[in-house]
C-alpha cells in the first residue's frame, strides 16, 4: 500500500468510478471536460472508450466551464472532471453559469484534504468548498465510497433541474492519500 498511488488503490467498495460512469449515461451527458487527476483515471478511461461522449482534454480547468456553457447553448449536457486545485482556476468563469442560468456539474477529486502529504495542495484543498459556495455552487461531499454515487446523482439533478453550478467533492478518505512512499 505504501507505494501505491491513488489510481492503483483498489478494494471491494472501489467501484465508484463505474457508478459515476453509469450516472453520466443515465443523465444523458454528451461532453466530458477534464484536466486529468489520478483519482479520476478509471472514470476517464471509461469515458474515452465511449464513442457517444466527446471527451475534451483541457489546458486549464476554466476552459471546461466555458465548454459547458457552449454545450448547453447547443442542447448537450456536460460535466467537468478535475482535482480540487483546478477549482481555483474556475471561479470567475463560473459567473457564466450564474448570469445565464446554465447547468454546470463538477466532479472534484480532493487533494489537500484528509492525510495530504504535499504542502502545495493544502491552500486550495482547504479553500475548495468555501470558494465554490461563495460563488453560488451547491456542494456535496463524499467521504465514503458508498456516498459517491448518491452525491454525484444529487449534483447532476441539482444542475439540470435547477440551472446552476453544482459540485461533488470526493474526499481523500475515498481516494487514498498519495504519500510518495512516505507513510509515517
Amino acid at each position: 500500500m505504501s507505494h501505491s498511488t491513488a489510481e492503483t488503490t483498489r478494494d471491494a467498495s472501489a467501484d465508484w468510478p463505474e457508478a459515476i460512469y453509469a450516472l453520466l449515461k443515465k443523465y444523458s451527458i454528451r461532453q466530458v471536460a477534464l484536466v486529468p487527476d489520478a483519482g479520476h483515471s478509471r472514470l476517464i478511461k471509461r469515458c474515452l472508450a465511449d464513442n457517444e461522449l466527446h471527451v475534451v482534454s483541457l489546458t486549464t480547468e476554466e476552459e471546461g466551464i466555458a465548454l459547458m456553457q457552449g454545450a448547453w447553448l447547443g442542447g448537450q449536457r456536460s460535466v467537468l472532471l478535475m482535482q480540487s486545485s483546478g477549482v481555483g482556476n474556475c471561479i470567475n468563469m463560473l459567473s457564466l453559469s450564474t448570469i445565464h442560468r446554465c447547468p454546470m456539474p463538477m466532479l472534484v477529486t480532493m487533494r489537500g484534504d484528509f492525510g495530504e502529504f504535499n504542502p502545495a495542495q493544502i491552500p486550495m484543498g482547504q479553500a475548495t468548498q468555501p470558494v465554490l459556495e461563495a460563488v453560488g455552487t451547491l456542494v456535496q461531499r463524499a467521504d465514503r465510497p458508498e456516498d459517491v454515487a448518491p452525491c454525484v446523482e444529487a449534483t447532476l439533478k441539482f444542475a439540470f433541474n435547477t440551472f446552476r453550478p453544482t459540485a461533488t467533492l470526493i474526499g481523500q478518505r475515498v481516494l487514498g492519500a498519495k504519500t510518495f512512499g512516505k507513510d509515517d
Binding site: 456553457q69 447553448l73 447547443g74 448537450q76 470567475n92 459567473s95 448570469i99
Partner: peptide
C-alpha cells in the same frame, strides 16, 4: 447571437462546446 458580458477568455471554448453540440451549424 450570444454577446458575452463577462467570462473573459471564454469565447473560443464556448464556441467549441456549441460547435460539438451542433455539428450541422
Amino acid at each position: 447571437n450570444l454577446p458575452l458580458w463577462g467570462g473573459m477568455g471564454a469565447a473560443a471554448m464556448i464556441g467549441l462546446g456549441l460547435a460539438l453540440a451542433q455539428p450541422e451549424r
